[in-house]
C-alpha cells in the first residue's frame, strides 16, 4: 500500500517516475518542494501573461489601421486566455487563485521583468511580438514536456497560439523597416530598447541561477537559461539582418568554429534593479492590476448574487 510508505520511499518512487518520463498528475504523491516550486513558477508565469497585456493594451486604440487593431486585440485576448490556463494549472496544485493574485499585488510574487518597460511607439508592438514573444516561445516549447501534466498541457495550448504572436510582431517590424526613413528609425529605436531586456528574459546566468539544477532534476526545466538565451540569439540575428535592422551590441560576432553568435555582457545590475521593483513601469503595472481587481469587485459580487437568484427561481 502506497499510503504506508516512508517519505524516503515515496520520494524514491517519485524520482523514478520522473526519470522514466512518466507525468505527474494533480492527485499523485509529490514532494512538497516540487509542489511549491511549481506553484511559484506557474503563478509567476500566469502573472506575466496578465501583466503582459498592459504594454500592448496601451496601443490598441492607436493602432495604425483596422487590420493591425484587430490583430493586436486578438493577441492581447490570447494573453488573457494564457493567464487563465496557467492560473487553473496552479489551482490543481492546491494554490488559491485569489491569494495568488494578492501575492502579485503585494509584490511577494514576481512576473517577467520585460513588462516593466514602457511602450513608447507603435514599433514597440512589433518589437514585443517579435522579440518578447519569440523569447517566450523559446522558454515555453520545452515546458510542453514538463513533468507536471496540467502545466505541460497548458503549455501545448499556449505554444500553438503563441506562434501567430511572433509572426504579427515580425510583420510590423519588417513593414516599418521597409518604410520611410522615419519609420525605419522607429523600428530601429524599438529594437534598441527591447533587445537587451529580451535577453534578460531568460533569467540570470546559469552560475547565478539558484533553482536551475533542482528544476532540471525534476524535469520541470529541460534547458538552462544560458542554453535558451544562446538559441534565441542564434535564430534572431539573421532575422534582424534580413529586414535591415542592426542589433545594438558592438561586441556581437559570429564564431565560425562553434557556429554560434557571441554577444556582449548583459547589464545584470539593470536586471536586478527591475526585478526589485525599480524599473520604469513596475509601480504603474501593479497599480493598474490592483485597480482592476478593486473596481471589478462589485461586478463579481453581482454575478454571484444573480447566479444565486437564478438558482432559487429554478428550484422554486
Amino acid at each position: 500500500m502506497v499510503k504506508d510508505l516512508s517519505i524516503q520511499e515515496l520520494e524514491k518512487r517519485f524520482q523514478e517516475k520522473i526519470d522514466k518520463d512518466i507525468k505527474i498528475e494533480p492527485n499523485d504523491w509529490m514532494p512538497d518542494d516540487y509542489r511549491q516550486t511549481l506553484i511559484r513558477q506557474i503563478s509567476q508565469h500566469a502573472h506575466s501573461e496578465i501583466v503582459g497585456m498592459l504594454p500592448e493594451g496601451n496601443w490598441i486604440t492607436r493602432a495604425p489601421n483596422l487590420r493591425r487593431k484587430a490583430v493586436l486585440l486578438a493577441k492581447v485576448q490570447d494573453e488573457a486566455g494564457h493567464g487563465l490556463y496557467l492560473y487553473s494549472a496552479a489551482e490543481t496544485l492546491g494554490a488559491d487563485r485569489e491569494e495568488t493574485i494578492d501575492d502579485l499585488h503585494s509584490g511577494k510574487a514576481k512576473y517577467s521583468s520585460i513588462f516593466n518597460y514602457p511602450t513608447l511607439s507603435w514599433a514597440d508592438m512589433g518589437a514585443i511580438g517579435w522579440l518578447v514573444d519569440g523569447a517566450a516561445i523559446m522558454n515555453q516549447v520545452p515546458l510542453c514536456r514538463c513533468s507536471y501534466g496540467p502545466y505541460a498541457r497548458a503549455m501545448v495550448r499556449v505554444c500553438k497560439e503563441e506562434s501567430f504572436h511572433q509572426r504579427q510582431g515580425f510583420e510590423i517590424m519588417a513593414h516599418l523597416a521597409q518604410g520611410s526613413p522615419e519609420q525605419k528609425a522607429m523600428a530601429q529605436d524599438a529594437l534598441n530598447r527591447f533587445w537587451w531586456p529580451a535577453l534578460m528574459m531568460f533569467g540570470p546566468n546559469d552560475a547565478e541561477s539558484k533553482h536551475t539544477l533542482q528544476s532540471m532534476n525534476w524535469k520541470i526545466k529541460r534547458h538552462t537559461n544560458d542554453e535558451l538565451r544562446q538559441q534565441f540569439v542564434d535564430v534572431t540575428i539573421p532575422q534582424a539582418e534580413m529586414i535591415g535592422l542592426t542589433i545594438p551590441d558592438k561586441d556581437l560576432i559570429f564564431n565560425e568554429l562553434t557556429g554560434h553568435y557571441e554577444f556582449g555582457e548583459i547589464n545584470w545590475d539593470e536586471f536586478w534593479n527591475v526585478v526589485k521593483g525599480n524599473g520604469p513601469c513596475n509601480k504603474d503595472r501593479i497599480d493598474t492590476r490592483k485597480k482592476a481587481k478593486e473596481d471589478g469587485a462589485w461586478v463579481r459580487e453581482a454575478a454571484l448574487a444573480f447566479a444565486d437568484k437564478r438558482q432559487k427561481r429554478k428550484s422554486a
Partner: peptide, 23 residues
C-alpha cells in the same frame, strides 16, 4: 480541456467559449 471559474453554469459555458474555443 481544463478548468475555469464562473458564477454559474451559463457563465461557465460563455467563459469556456472564450477561453477554450477561440480557434
Amino acid at each position: 480541456v481544463g478548468s475555469l471559474r464562473a458564477a454559474d453554469a451559463e457563465m461557465a459555458i460563455d467563459n469556456a467559449r472564450d477561453v477554450y474555443t477561440r480557434r
